[in-house]
Design a protein around this nucleic acid. Structure first.
Lengths: 149, 149
DNA sequence: TCTGATAATGAGAAAGATTATCATTTGCAA
DNA sequence: TTGCAAATGATAATCTTTCTCATTATCAGA
């Protein structure tokens, strides 16, 4: 059983800043999210939240994750596999993108300023302001050229 | 009731090329797909297929769409809204991408060679070969600056 | 600190999309 | 034309997510 208490997690603070009622469950979920640097689905978040508060309900995790998304705290991702996955939203700086290993399903994050700018320009030229970018590239590990075989 | 017969649709030919058994239902679905230039979901494909063959089952549409995807004939897309949407896969040339209107949900296709190249380069530099790109940008129509108002 | 209105939660039912089951039918190679 | 493996139709089952509603907790104000 971990310690979600005392100084609130960064996300819990964000939660308060947005004027959301800060319940025990939301504090727990915010803590779990602040503590994660991967892309958990709801089931996985629920598992982690239960470690902190065994009485939390999965319905609450679904609700909270949706609430956080609507408030720009979380971003929903689709990496295939039928369930939504979540990560903490980027700040005002640059977006980040995802490379998915075709064979293992492993998700690798990357940033690229040139890509940011290009996408922004393309969208603008089409008469739109860019709101969100959903980009994931699927790749297959290149066969390592062996050192002479 | 449309005419799916006689000269097979391009997709039906592709189907045969891949060594897939060409049943009446597959011929129908291939025809419907060849005839579509949008991004229908399964429900919509089913509606269109029923126009051609009223006895087709939605289960078959689901099955066929999956089969076609596994064989590189179709691509599955996620534009939000909870259901998968499909379109005929690109050839060997360039991928195409999607701009989604944040307010109307309208999907606008675009191509961009610079983007193709940049993504390819990024992925390569990370040690991978690019398999698929899933890119959709959400944008909001720019307010038209009125001609002096 | 206590109280009450209001909103959040828990548990499970319900909904929506997709896949599996299985008896029947069909495509196609021999 | 025949036979067999594979596909289909109808529907049940599954899986993820949302909804319902009785109970509980938060937080502003007294």
């Amino acid at each position: 059983m971990k310690e979600p208490n005392s100084p609130d997690s960064p996300l819990a603070d964000l939660c308060r800043q947005r004027g959301l009622k800060l319940t025990g469950q939301r504090r727990t979920i915010a803590f779990v999210l602040s503590d994660s640097d991967d892309h958990p689905d709801v089931e996985e978040l629920y598992r982690r939240a239960v470690e902190v508060d065994p009485r939390i309900s999965i319905a609450t995790v679904y609700r909270t994750v949706r609430l956080f998304e609507e408030n720009g705290i979380l971003q929903r991702r689709d990496f295939g596999g039928g369930r939504a996955r979540y990560e903490v939203a980027d700040g005002d700086h640059g977006d980040h993108y995802h490379l998915i290993d075709a064979d293992t399903g492993k998700v690798i994050e990357f940033e690229n300023a040139e890509l940011d700018a290009l996408l922004d320009g393309i969208v603008r030229q089409m008469g739109y302001d860019l709101v969100t970018t959903r980009l994931s590239v699927v790749g297959r590990r290149k066969a390592k050229p062996r050192s002479r075989g």
